[in-house]
Amino acid sequence: MIIWKCSRCPSFRRLLLTFLGGVFLVFVWYVLARIYAGKLVLPSPFETLSTLFGLLTSVIGWQTFGVTLLRVGAAIFAGGAVGLLLGIAAGLSQDLRWFLEPLRWVSMSIPPITVVVIAMLWLGVGSGLVVCFASVMLAPIVYVNTIKGFDLVDDRLLEMATLYRFSLSMRVRRVYIPALTVPLSAAAVQVVCNAVRVTLLAEVIGSNNGMGAAISLANSTLELPTLFAWILIAVLLVGLLESLLLGPMQRRSEKWSKAK
């Protein structure tokens, strides 16, 4: 009843429904944990939350989380910068776009696990491997969305810029980049989610520290509550980045379109 009565406050309605969706997931988790209780398959939400609390109150827990967070940040920065710069260059030059097409195709179709294995051979285990692998996985997402954005730029605005002799830098700053913010905002969500996933994947295989390594250890010692607590932290990290970083960025970049 509350949901239908608050049709006048869409943001509250959205929050309420999202919260209820979360509660539903936890309920399903709880039911499944009860069904498989004692079989070392699924810990209960209570056990997991208790372990999560333990991790969040320990120095090692925060250190582990911090290492992964830094790697995620570095991967987003490096992969984002490479994808954006190449995307802008390829958006401005059709020839370069064709030239880069095989590289895009290879980087998007190669199985991630093989990239980790090759990177391990070349770089050894550690932060270098994790950041490099995650960047390689993220750059094509940014690259493809940047090019998509270029294709959506209004030709009439470009003609106006040509007539008034906008310099290349003015054209990029005043026409292309603002026009790119809509497709790139959508890509940013994808990039953040994937950054956490691929960083954890690389840490599971090629690192002795970080959340991925902790997940791997918990898995091998069958500490399921710890395993699920780290998974929960990863999920919460994506949620936090999405709502605290991407949301405001998106609202800021699109305020001109909401003004109407």
Partner: peptide
Amino acid sequence: FQEPRLLPW
């Protein structure tokens, strides 16, 4: 221009 072609942002 026939249509204003202002930069909306």
